[in-house]
Nucleic acid binder design. Structure first.
Length: 589
RNA sequence: GGUCACGUAGCUCAGUAGGAUAGAGCAACUGCCUUCUAAGCAGUAGGUCACAGGUUCAAAUCCUGUCGUGAUCACCA
């Protein structure tokens, strides 16, 4: 359908070539659809970037004539206003848009039709939780961005692996183990008020942090130390945890057994939360397995003199004159060790990866810079061209940053869902749909914001369901669905008749042909909010159209058919988009 | 201090990969259900696009500088 626009480009290019006798970029030509149909702008505008205005007017006239001659069927006239060449389309053009969709059986997959991509493998690494506490709203943003981007790639025909790596090893887990031993020995989630098992583990972890803080305050007093780093060195609790880590890496049986027990509790909880969100992964990796690959690799790096051994026997990588520690002096590994290991594991498993995306918060930009730098150093060995860190900004709570690692002021996803359910229950009559509406609303609210922006999470505001929100999209869907249910139509081409399209119909049709472009833009910019903004605008167009026009009750059978077809196309696009964002689709609301 | 984001209406955010008179939602006010779902539609009011330069036919958008907010700068993951 964008053929017309493409041909406009070609014709403009050819003309400019003739005149200037040199190569012309697409940048010099801009072609726009106008969605506000005012009498000056027309339907399609061509803008040429040429310095001389006098010259431009001549060229516009020339180009206008050429295009008008060639597309008499579609174009009524052209006008030159200021710097713009405006074309006024015949209604026939809009009818063609509908017929184009009917020809493709109003099947969105036929319209997107991207066979070229089907051998390109995209791996999207998202969520990546630590196994020491439940998933919180920071994870939620991560998960929703990752999942939506994955689904768009899928829709565009790529092979997609949704991958999750669970950070199930490291000092944080050992802190949890110690906490259980010291403060909760013998207690299970069941014995602890039958609390959701991952929440129980979260309690263990934060108990450790609380006790550690107490101890450090005590150390300040006792040894008259002011520096936190020095105080930490004297902490007995941390010593315990560190010893536990060494035990763990040495495969100590007792330690591993307890570790497995606690992890099991966490995974059981994760599973339930993912189920509520309807998130499924194609692959789950565990840091406890991949870190060994990383460790081995680091030894290779020492041989190649890319990594170096420090005086205290820790191993580091020099990055902007800074020593980046890869292995501690006691030989235990770090986050980056695991990251390298996981990458190597994936390369071995999949062989040809077209693009690897890490969805990880923006606080880790530095970390990924290092990782990518290391990969570049090993370009003979690590063969991956496209690797990208999709970073997103923080989720603040009531104006404050959530420091999830240190303080117990996190909003867990489970609790958010509970609160939303309660709120929706008050507002909505149909009680069967509460869960769907509340999940849909939560998801939509997180996705609709550009990943680079901070989300200021506030229950009062977030629970508001008016405006650009899930319910609005859902309501639009249900409205059209009910019409089409009452009058089903076949995919039959519409005959040409002298019918004037209304602006609200034109608006929908112009937006409809942008759909593929929107999907592509969303992944090119790694921004799922582009898609939500699109379906919001489309929904607005549709509601306006619905309220101002008679569809089923129209006496003119031809117009009735035409409008029903518009409804059908919109319904399919909304359906597809909602599936991509993965918000529930309710036929009746 | 270095690096990276962000700064648009009272609030929350858009701004179509530089284009015409700056766009929505919330909150406020005014209309519209005898008519296909009013969880909707239409309208009023609200703006020095942080500030200052530069690039050009054209800048909220690109470049430079300043200010403000946040993140980060390693033996936490």
């Amino acid at each position: 359908m964008n053929k017309l626009i493409l041909n406009f480009y070609k014709l403009s290019k050819n003309l400019l070539k003739k005149i200037y006798n040199k190569k012309i970029n697409n940048n010099n030509i801009k072609i726009l659809y106008n969605t506000k149909f005012n009498k000056i702008k027309g339907d399609i505008t061509i803008i040429l970037s040429l310095s001389s205005i006098l010259e431009k007017k001549k060229i516009y006239k020339n180009l206008g004539n050429i295009i008008l001659k060639k597309y008499k069927k579609n174009i009524l006239k052209y006008e030159i206003k200021n710097n713009y060449l405006n074309f006024f389309l015949k209604d026939n053009y809009y009818l063609n848009i509908i017929n184009f969709f009917i020809k493709k059986k109003i099947n969105i997959n036929n319209i997107i039709n991207n066979i070229n991509n089907n051998k390109k493998l995209i791996i999207i690494d998202f969520s990546s939780p630590n196994s020491n506490k439940p998933l919180h709203i920071g994870h939620l943003r991560n998960i929703l961005i990752g999942n939506t981007i994955s689904n768009i790639y899928k829709k565009l025909g790529y092979k997609v692996i949704k991958s999750q790596i669970i950070n199930d090893r490291g000092i944080h887990i050992c802190k949890t183990i110690i906490s259980w031993k010291l403060f909760f020995n013998g207690i299970t989630p069941l014995l602890y008020n039958n609390i959701k098992s991952d929440h129980f583990v979260g309690k263990l972890y934060f108990k450790f942090e609380k006790e550690l803080n107490k101890e450090i305050k005590y150390i300040y007093k006792k040894y008259k130390i002011k520096n936190k780093k020095d105080a930490i060195k004297k902490s007995k609790l941390l010593k315990y945890a560190n010893n536990e880590l060494i035990k763990w890496e040495n495969n100590n049986k007792k330690c591993i057994k307890l570790w497995k027990k606690i992890n099991k509790w966490v995974y059981k909880g994760f599973k339930k939360t993912y189920k509520k969100l309807n998130i499924k992964f194609n692959e789950i990796l565990f840091e406890s397995k991949t870190y060994i690959i990383g460790k081995k690799f680091i030894k290779k790096g020492i041989k190649k003199n890319i990594f170096k051994i420090d005086k205290d026997k820790s191993i580091y990588f020099l990055f902007i004159k800074k020593k980046i520690i890869l292995l501690r002096k006691n030989g235990t590994s770090l986050y980056i060790t695991q990251e390298i290991g996981t990458l190597l594991y994936r390369l071995k498993k999949y062989k040809k990866i077209y693009l690897l995306i890490y969805v990880v918060g923006n606080e880790q930009i530095f970390h990924f810079k290092i990782l990518f730098k290391i990969i570049k150093k090993f370009n003979n060995f690590i063969k991956i061209k496209n690797i990208y860190h999709l970073s997103y900004n923080t989720v603040n709570f009531m104006g404050k940053k959530i420091k999830s690692r240190y303080k117990n002021n996190i909003i867990y996803i489970d609790d958010l869902i509970k609160k939303m359910n309660k709120y929706v229950k008050k507002k909505i009559k149909n009680k069967k749909k509460i869960k769907k509406i509340s999940i849909g609303s939560i998801k939509y609210q997180f996705i609709k914001i550009n990943p680079n922006k901070i989300i200021n999470f506030d229950f009062k505001k977030s629970l508001n369901l008016k405006g650009n929100n899930y319910i609005y999209i859902q309501y639009t869907y249900a409205r059209i669905y009910s019409i089409l249910k009452k009058n089903k139509i076949k995919n039959k081409l519409l005959k040409k008749k002298n019918i004037k399209f209304k602006n609200n119909e034109k608006n929908i049709l112009i937006n409809i042909i942008k759909y593929k472009k929107i999907l592509k833009k969303s992944i090119n910019k790694y921004d799922p909010s582009i898609l939500t903004k699109y379906i919001y605008i489309l929904s607005k167009n549709v509601n306006n159209f619905y309220q101002k026009n008679k569809i089923l009750n129209n006496k003119n059978i031809y117009i009735k058919k035409l409008r029903l077809n518009i409804c059908k196309i919109v319904l399919k696009i909304l359906y597809n988009s909602m599936k991509i964002i993965d918000i529930p689709i309710i036929k009746k609301i």
